[in-house]
Computed example of a mutant assay.
Amino acid sequence: MKSDFPRILTLLRKEKGISQKQAASDLGISQALLSHYEKGIRECGLNFVVNAAEYYGVSCDYLLGRSPDRTGAVLSVDDIPEPDAAGKENVFHGSLLPTLNKKLIANSLNILFDMLQEVGSRELTTEVSDYLMAAVYKMFRELYSAHPKNPEGLFAAGTPVFRALASASMEISEMKVHCIAHGIDTEGITPLESVEALETSPEKLSNKYPLFASSLSNLIKSVETRMGVRRK
């Protein structure tokens, strides 16, 4: 059985806010046996998977780690909400700083991914995306782990090692992006045959992305200021 199963089984119980003893009783097994399931010491049968999925209100695929969606659905592009979709999840209260920075980053990403679309390299898009997702993962986890009551079962990587693993993953992706974009022929990497699609300038960016170019310009300035670099 997948190693994700014990972690997800434990996480669901903790999210439900019940003890192991209570969950075992509700599921009709001993606490000792449930403890073995949650620790991955023993494998359970199909009946338990079905009963546990029904008990926690998730699909068997989610419980087994086969789907990131609790209903077991497979996400398509149309299923993912737009970054600026209306609703309470997109509303910031209080300081304007989170809203401002979110817009600078989101608008700059629009330009970045449009450039990737024009290049048409699946490998390059994958590596850029992996780098950015790892960065978001690291920052989310730092905030998430700040509260001691938040269940660590949400993550598979342990607390002592996740920073190093995520940073290593980002460095590998950054190296691959450099090799692909700069035509460095390295084993396992297919460099771009042409970089013509990447030709641009501040003027071209402003003309092509009139709504987003200023955000990218401000993001660049902000990052370089934090780096201690100032324009001459």
Rank of each mutant, 00 (worst) to 15 (best):
S145K: 02
E15A: 06
T126V: 14
K232F: 09
F212W: 10
L165K: 00
G72F: 08
S67K: 05
L100Y: 10
P83V: 02
E193R: 09
E82Q: 13
I29P: 02
L75F: 12
Y37F: 10
A157W: 00
Y37T: 04
S217F: 14
Y55H: 12
Q22W: 00
L109P: 01
T10V: 03
E118W: 03
G183I: 06
Q117F: 13
N101F: 15
I189A: 08
S173H: 12
N110G: 11
S35H: 13
H147R: 04
D79P: 04
T200D: 06
V136E: 07
N51F: 09
R163Y: 03
M170R: 12
L211C: 08
R13K: 04
K21W: 11
I189R: 03
K221N: 14
A156Y: 03
T99P: 00
V74I: 13
V223A: 15
E38D: 06
I105T: 14
M1C: 05
A197C: 09
I184P: 06
E118S: 06
A32G: 14
L216R: 04
H147P: 00
N90S: 14
K204Y: 08
L198G: 03
H178F: 12
L219W: 06
A134N: 05
L34Q: 09
L143W: 09
R7D: 04
E187C: 08
K149P: 01
K102Q: 10
A181P: 02
P160G: 02
L109E: 12
E174P: 01
H36C: 05
K138R: 12
F155N: 02
R163C: 05
R231K: 08
T186M: 14
G65Y: 00
L104K: 07
C44T: 15
V177T: 06
E187V: 12
L154V: 09
T125S: 15
F155A: 00
H147A: 05
Y37C: 05
G57T: 08
E152P: 01
K204A: 13
L97M: 10
I220P: 05
L109W: 06
L165P: 00
R122W: 04
N107I: 00
E203V: 07
K176I: 05
S25T: 11
Y62Q: 11
G120A: 03
P210F: 08
V195T: 15
L46W: 11
A156P: 01
E38C: 02
A106S: 09
I105F: 15
A181L: 05
E15C: 07
D79Q: 07
R66M: 05
T10H: 09
V77N: 11
L46R: 14
T71M: 15
L109A: 14
E142I: 12
H36A: 10
M227H: 15
L124S: 01
I111C: 07
A181C: 04
Y209H: 11
Y144P: 04
N110V: 13
K232Y: 12
S25L: 13
S201C: 03
M175D: 07
M170L: 08
K176R: 13
C179E: 11
V58H: 08
L33A: 09
D78R: 14
R42A: 03
L211I: 06
A73C: 10
A23F: 04
F162S: 00
